Simulated scan of single mutants.
Amino acid sequence: MNQSPNHENKRKQAVALKYQAGVMEAPKVVAKGKGFVAENILKTAKENDIPIQEDPSLVEVLGKLDLDQQIPPELYQVVAEILAFVYRLDKGGAKG
């Protein structure tokens, strides 16, 4: 999700995941985009106090998934770590 002024072809990218424990088998992609769309995804997340985790490598992989597609099992561990981070933020009363 990092944007470098030296690389004009390197546009900001964002992917939004949704997960409901006990309801969904695995997190799924609910929004994704580059450039202006990515900026809007990030803006919406900030406006709604949704924590943002910057991980350009993970965003690159998740960006290849289709909308409403569940993440593949090989990504469960890394996404679980992010969800644990978000859970700790929520329990601590911190805003992302």
Rank of each mutant, 00 (worst) to 15 (best):
D68Q: 11
L58G: 07
Y76D: 00
R88Q: 12
E25T: 12
A38E: 10
P72D: 01
E25G: 09
L17R: 06
Q53R: 12
Y19C: 10
A84M: 10
V29A: 05
I82P: 01
I50Q: 03
D55F: 05
K46E: 15
V15R: 01
E8G: 08
I50W: 02
Q3Y: 14
Q69I: 03
T44Y: 03
L83T: 02
V37K: 10
R11S: 12
V37A: 08
V29E: 02
N48M: 06
N9G: 09
K32P: 07
L65G: 05
N48Q: 09
Q3A: 15
D90I: 11
I82S: 00
M1E: 06
E54H: 09
D55V: 09
E8C: 09
N40F: 08
Y76I: 00
D49Q: 13
A26S: 10
V30I: 13
L58W: 07
G93I: 06
V37G: 07
V29K: 02
A21R: 14
K91P: 02
N40L: 13
R88F: 05
E39P: 00
S57H: 07
T44M: 06
S57K: 07
G33T: 08
A21F: 07
L58K: 07
G63F: 10
V79A: 01
S57R: 07
I41M: 11
P56L: 06
G96I: 11
G22C: 07
L42Q: 08
A16S: 12
L42H: 02
Y19A: 05
L17M: 09
L89P: 09
V79M: 01
A16Y: 03
K91L: 13
K28H: 10
Q70T: 03
G35L: 06
G35W: 04
Q20D: 14
L83N: 03
V78D: 00
I71Q: 00
D49W: 06
G92W: 05
V23A: 14
A16I: 04
A21T: 10
A80V: 02
V30R: 01
E25A: 13
L67P: 05
E25V: 08
G63R: 06
E47A: 09
V37D: 08
I41Y: 08
V59T: 15
T44H: 05
E39C: 04
L62H: 01
F85Y: 14
V59D: 11
V79P: 00
V86P: 02
V30K: 00
P27T: 01
K32Q: 12
L83H: 02
M24N: 15
D55R: 09
P27G: 04
A21L: 11
V86N: 01
L65H: 03
A94C: 12
V78C: 01
V86W: 04
K46D: 14
E47V: 02
A21Y: 08
I50P: 03
Q53I: 12
L75R: 01
P5T: 04
Q3D: 15
L67N: 09
I82M: 03
K32W: 07
G92A: 15
D66M: 04
V59Q: 05
K10G: 08
T44K: 03
G22T: 08
I41N: 10
A45K: 13
N2G: 12
A31I: 09
L65M: 11
K43L: 12
Q20F: 10
L75D: 01
Q3V: 15
F85D: 10
